[in-house]
Every structure is written in C-alpha cells, then in structure tokens.
Simulated assay, not measured.
Amino acid sequence: MMSSWSRRRAAVAAEAEKEDRAAQEAALVQEHEALAEKSDDEILESLGLPDPDSLAMGDDFKAFMSKAVPEHIRKRALRHLWRSNPVLACVDGLNDYDDDYLAQSIGQDPLKTTYQVGKGMLAHLLEVERQKEAGPVVAKVEVEEDTAEDVTETAAATSVDLPEDGAAVEEDPAPLTPRRMQFQFEDDVA
C-alpha cells in the first residue's frame, strides 16, 4: 500500500514526464513547420539523409523512420524499400486481407446459397424432413421356392432405398466406431 507521500511523488513525476513529452511534441511540430517550407532535397540535406531513391537493397532505411523526418519523405523511402527488395515486394496471395470479399456481391453472377436470414440453412433441412415423411422404398426380390426363406430373411435385414426413378441407391457404410488402443505388457501375458 502506498502512502499519500508516495502517491504525491509519483503524481509529480508523471506530471513532469507529461510536460516533457508535450515540450518534445511542440518542438517536433515547429521543426516540421520549418521543414514544410523547404524542398525535399533541402530537407534531406538538413537532416543529413541520403536521397531515398538512390538507396539499394541492403542499405539502412532506419534513419528515415525517425520522428524528425516528415511523413511524405518517410513514405517515399518506404516505397523505394518495397521496390528494392524482391522479398518485400513479393505478393504470395497468402494474406487474408488480399481477398476481395465483395466480388460475388457485385459480380454478374450473384452467389447462390440456401441460407435464409433468420432461418439459416432451411432448404436443406426441409428436404431431409420431406424424405423422412416419404419413408423408405423396399425392393421386392423374386426367388425360387426352395431358397425363399433365406432370401426373405436377408431382404428383411437389408432394405434398399430406391429413388422415384427406380435406380438403386448405394447404402452408406456403417459409421466407424472409434478404436481404443490396448496395451499388453510381458507381466500381464504370463
């Protein structure tokens, strides 16, 4: 717990730091105003910086990131940096922000979806319900009399759903049950 004297001392230090930052910002604004009247070559000469267009790949661009450098010269240096280094200039298409998410909404062929506002993916669910109400269609199998009992039991066990046009539909395989690993140790075997 801080005493009142410690809090007051911390507040005075914070206030002094705030005043220092304000003085630095005011000096920076005055510097930028003085540089605004000069041409780019004069600004670069007064700051002791080389021409950003003359720099090549591998040169140091850190000097242009100083707060004393005007924004338009900083941007000019960064543009030249991006052009000078092929790694920085390479657009590989893996950036999330590269995609144009409005392309489908303003294109000639609008995006088709079954989603309905407030109802979700309703069309798919309605189709599933319609199929449940229609019920499965069981195929009839004609066989000879001597094996009729065996086939009747097999047909009853496995029914085949037929669509309305009469073509057979393949059944989905039974869902796989997850297997569990079992370990046996030499002590357990004996």
Results as ranks from 00 to 15, higher is better:
residue 22 A to Q: 12
residue 71 E to Q: 10
residue 100 D to S: 09
residue 178 P to G: 10
residue 171 E to F: 13
residue 32 H to Y: 08
residue 65 M to W: 10
residue 22 A to M: 12
residue 48 G to M: 03
residue 176 L to V: 15
residue 95 N to W: 11
residue 169 V to H: 09
residue 82 W to C: 04
residue 173 P to G: 01
residue 10 A to D: 08
residue 16 A to W: 03
residue 138 V to K: 06
residue 58 G to P: 03
residue 72 H to A: 01
residue 59 D to V: 02
residue 98 D to V: 05
residue 117 V to P: 07
residue 4 S to F: 13
residue 81 L to T: 01
residue 151 V to C: 00
residue 69 V to D: 00
residue 187 D to V: 13
residue 68 A to V: 00
residue 6 S to W: 12
residue 129 E to I: 15
residue 18 K to C: 10
residue 71 E to R: 01
residue 171 E to V: 05
residue 101 Y to M: 07
residue 146 D to K: 11
residue 173 P to V: 03
residue 174 A to E: 11
residue 33 E to L: 15
residue 109 D to H: 05
residue 183 F to S: 15
residue 84 S to K: 03
residue 140 K to N: 13
residue 105 S to V: 14
residue 22 A to V: 15
residue 48 G to R: 00
residue 52 P to G: 02
residue 51 D to A: 06
residue 4 S to E: 06
residue 89 A to R: 12
residue 178 P to N: 08
residue 11 A to W: 13
residue 130 R to A: 15
residue 157 A to V: 06
residue 155 A to Y: 04
residue 119 K to M: 10
residue 52 P to Q: 04
residue 111 L to Y: 13
residue 69 V to A: 01
residue 51 D to T: 02
residue 100 D to A: 05
residue 22 A to E: 15
residue 129 E to C: 10
residue 174 A to G: 03
residue 124 H to P: 00
residue 126 L to R: 07
residue 76 R to M: 03
residue 70 P to N: 07
residue 63 A to Y: 01
residue 125 L to W: 11
residue 43 I to T: 03
residue 51 D to Q: 09
residue 97 Y to E: 03
residue 31 E to D: 08
residue 108 Q to A: 07
residue 138 V to H: 13
residue 42 E to L: 07
residue 46 S to G: 02
residue 130 R to K: 14
residue 160 V to P: 03
residue 34 A to E: 14
residue 19 E to D: 06
residue 113 T to E: 09
residue 42 E to T: 04
residue 149 E to K: 08
residue 180 R to V: 12
residue 51 D to M: 06
residue 121 M to I: 14
residue 158 T to Y: 14
residue 78 L to P: 00
residue 82 W to A: 05
residue 114 T to C: 09
residue 123 A to N: 07
residue 24 Q to V: 11
residue 180 R to M: 01
residue 160 V to Q: 04
residue 132 K to F: 09
residue 115 Y to F: 13
residue 22 A to K: 14
residue 12 V to Q: 14
residue 93 G to F: 04
residue 113 T to M: 03
residue 62 K to I: 00
residue 8 R to G: 06
residue 64 F to M: 04
